[in-house]
Amino acid sequence: MHEVSIASEIIEIVRQNLPDGFDNKVKSVKLDLGEFTNIVPEALKFGFEVLTEGTELDGAQLIMNILPLKIECQICENVSLTEPGYFFCVKCGTDKVNIISGKEMKVVEIEIYD
């Protein structure tokens, strides 16, 4: 249940990026969240809602852009979607692959009321 710690980091990042003297509400917070992280989106949303109660982020919508687990073959450069435990190229069979998407955990942008 480290989603509460993650929610707390997200809130801190949002606060650091609010304009000086900001005294209104945050409308939404947009995240990139990879499929290959140990984050349960519902738990993150719950943690975010609890921690933002009564603050400038109260009621802000947490928009999670879930990114699939994607690998690229180092040999034939084929890109494919995969699942954990299947880290090999579907085209040439090698396990020399790089993960190019799926591990993201990033605050992308926020929308605020002026």
Partner: peptide
């Protein structure tokens, strides 16, 4: 309303 671009890793402070 305004959009603010952040592009920051969530665990950057820990990292």
């Amino acid at each position: 309303m305004s959009l603010i671009t952040i592009e920051k890793k969530v665990l950057e402070a820990n990292n």
